[in-house]
Write a protein that binds this DNA or RNA. Sequence first.
DNA 1: CGGTTACATGTAAGCGGTTACATTCGAGGA
DNA 2: TCCTCGAATGTAACCGCTTACATGTAACCG
Lengths: 346, 346
Amino acid sequence: MPKRATIRDVAMRAGVSLATVSRALNGSALVNAATKQRIVEVAEELEFAPSLSARRLSLGKTQTITVVVSFLTRPQAAERLRGIDAALADSEFDLVIYNVETVEKRNQYFQTLALRQRTDGLLVVSLPPSDDDVHRLERSDVPVVFVDAHENTDRLPRVLGDDVAGGELATQHLLDLGHRRIAYIGDAFVNPFGFTSSRDRFEGYRRALVRAGLDAAGEHVALGAHGRYEARDLAASMLSQRDRPTAIFAGSDTQALGVLAAAQDLGLHVPDDLSVIGYDDIEACDFVGLTTVRQHLFESGRQGAQLLLAEIVERAETPQSVVIQPEIVLRRTTAPPGRRAAARSD
Amino acid sequence: MPKRATIRDVAMRAGVSLATVSRALNGSALVNAATKQRIVEVAEELEFAPSLSARRLSLGKTQTITVVVSFLTRPQAAERLRGIDAALADSEFDLVIYNVETVEKRNQYFQTLALRQRTDGLLVVSLPPSDDDVHRLERSDVPVVFVDAHENTDRLPRVLGDDVAGGELATQHLLDLGHRRIAYIGDAFVNPFGFTSSRDRFEGYRRALVRAGLDAAGEHVALGAHGRYEARDLAASMLSQRDRPTAIFAGSDTQALGVLAAAQDLGLHVPDDLSVIGYDDIEACDFVGLTTVRQHLFESGRQGAQLLLAEIVERAETPQSVVIQPEIVLRRTTAPPGRRAAARSD
DNA sequence: CGGTTACATGTAAGCGGTTACATTCGAGGA
DNA sequence: TCCTCGAATGTAACCGCTTACATGTAACCG
């Protein structure tokens, strides 16, 4: 295979100079139409494709947007990614992806990427930065936008869901249905990555209960690792107690699915014996009819990317913070507390 | 914000030449330990990060692997992507992603990417190339590996699932349970992207039936667009006929979920009235207990990426074709044809 | 003690584009 | 006819790094 043609080969073959070829191919106005025509033909003939590295070096831009995302294959992440891709599809930027599943990777990426000349823009999804990271980012001049990372990002542009509002929404829905013994099952509030969604959703839960004159004491709260099986176990033990809740608010759909499994194992009928509401509105909710709180994942990705594109063009004087309001999606797992529930609970 | 430090700044500050800095930072053996030490310190002090564009241009490598994937957010794709990421995580390569959801995008990407100097390697997932694409790829010297693309890829390195075998596996399972009226619901056999999985799985289905002395006539076959709702509608009309099938093999889990929904709508109990088996083993299968054929998605992505890395190091004389055998995963949606099914079918 | 050797470092030529600035040339105006 | 001006093109510097080759130096040899 012959070496690929360079701009020089095209110039020679077309009988013009490098500069003219470059201009012609980049649509500069100052090229004679006939010349341009000829150059384009020669370029096609030689199958000329400009070296991106050279172009980027010369331009001083990477033409690249880097997305650092935690747990790429969680359904939430994939959906956000699609939103990001949609916003970037018609731009000149390539999309580079770094997947983070361990704290070490996280640190490694933040340290090497938070630097100019690696990328034109950094989009961090579901991954709150450490104080050090923030300093580094502020010192470097890489445009960066955070999506779904509350902690430590208040001085930076970001797109957030309102988890507290969502927690209230879910809980209020259960209260409106007449439930009084409402439990919360979610992720541990402190975790190596600094995720805050579980804590915030719980806070919304708490507020709704307090507003309704109920207390959010610990007996109906169970926290554990993120995962369906973990949630199932938590729910199983919670549902085996004598004053078991009539409704459970799960901090994520994944966990809500675990709760459903536990209910099934115990022979509890949903929603007659137990109401369940989740959070996120992942695809599986539709399959199983799970009532949940929709996060607008695609939209959050899209807006994050748009914000970043805007930042790249011109740094905003004061960092924007876009908040996306969650919305409740009613399906078949919530209902007023039923007779059967009352009958069994004694 | 001051301009970022270049290698020149480091050299000046450390009192050595460019070359020495480059050598020191790239771990060349021919640098005095003390000098190296000093350079590293200065580099840190200045927060020096080499320009990747410059490095790449100079090295003549892009250090980039490009993945072109169709329908990024289908659960299958996300899982494969994770496999790819896993194989690449410890390599020097960045992962660039192009998502394809329209035929135009497909063509555009194939045309611009099938060229050297854009990427060191191309991994194409679930996207069969056209004849033109193949020619272009063969002419260019970009290492390329196809994952999950049967059509037109026989002269190229690839990783495939054996869809025919999987189709047989699924159908044989139903036959073994005692079913005789077994239907197939899948994607249309011809489609703009040239996907062949539905056709091949059907072929496996047909073979199994023929081997069992049954004919695979058209009455129990329904094809439509990929999607849960489409499959639900197909299943609904199929299940309303008088000699309705006692088992349905769906060409994908997504469609199997639609079949389950249709059964529920019609008041049919699964698996007593109807057995359902899917294909792929996406996460949702576990939620709903769907019996299915597992494709080893993560593994296919991982092996594809490994094959590509090998191709980059040294082009194989004869293109490798890795076939991953599917495996049946038994859950709760298949059972012998029940009395109730028999009772209702007349 | 001159010469070879090995190691450490410097010099400078690329890598393949973009673009500021210089040059050429023909048209139009005085 | 000479000059000015603008359009079209050429020349060459530069982007920031790697690396072949040249150079310098100290140790070691006969």
